[in-house]
């Protein structure tokens, strides 16, 4: 009940043989050792801390089987920074104190990465976009501020520079 798959994660191609029932979240964490993607709930897939970007859109990696990702591209939290340079959203989260324990943070980073491709600067719209990731520490106030800061910064970049920050 195994299958050989090839998945591009953060730009690197991985060839692995996985059990059919292995969840994508566990593929990232256990098979590839990319433990930045976290698992915070159970079968329900509600908490969103496992969110990654799959073929350009934010999805909950605990609600996908690894075998489904054969031939696909995934962006996880480890792939946001460019070397030592943090993604504008990572930097904004840092500047605005948008994280405390950090357990939900990868989920927010990847969900709002997608949001920032076509941002809307209204705080209610930002909050609505965040509804799929739960945080217990911050009360969301500083995360909203961080998204606003990142949106402003990205809007001021020239298109090529901006495109570099959205590899998937």
């Amino acid at each position: 009940m195994n299958r050989a798959i090839t998945v591009r994660v953060n730009g690197t191609l991985h060839h692995e043989t996985v059990d059919h029932r292995l969840l994508l979240s566990d593929f990232l964490r256990e098979t590839l050792g990319l433990t930045g993607t976290h698992v915070g709930c159970g079968y329900e897939g509600r908490c969103g801390v496992c969110t990654v970007v799959y073929e350009g859109v934010a999805i909950k990696s605990c609600l996908m089987l690894a075998v489904q990702a054969d031939g696909a591209a995934v962006l996880s939290v480890e792939g946001l920074a460019r070397g030592e340079e943090l993604h504008p959203l990572q930097r904004a989260m840092h500047d605005c104190h948008g994280l405390q324990c950090g357990f939900c943070t990868p989920g927010f980073l990847l969900t709002m990465y997608e949001f920032l491709k076509t941002p809307v600067s209204d705080p209610n719209t930002i909050r609505a976009a965040m509804n799929g990731v739960l945080c217990r520490c911050t009360g969301y106030v500083h995360i909203v501020a961080a998204v606003e800061q990142a949106a402003r910064e990205l809007a001021q970049m020239d298109p090529d520079e901006r495109a570099r920050w959205f590899p998937l």
């Binding site: 969110t51 999805i59 909950k60 969900t111 997608e114 509804n131």
Partner: peptide
Amino acid sequence: LGDRQVRNR
């Protein structure tokens, strides 16, 4: 229906 990530799939 659901949230952003759910709607994407």
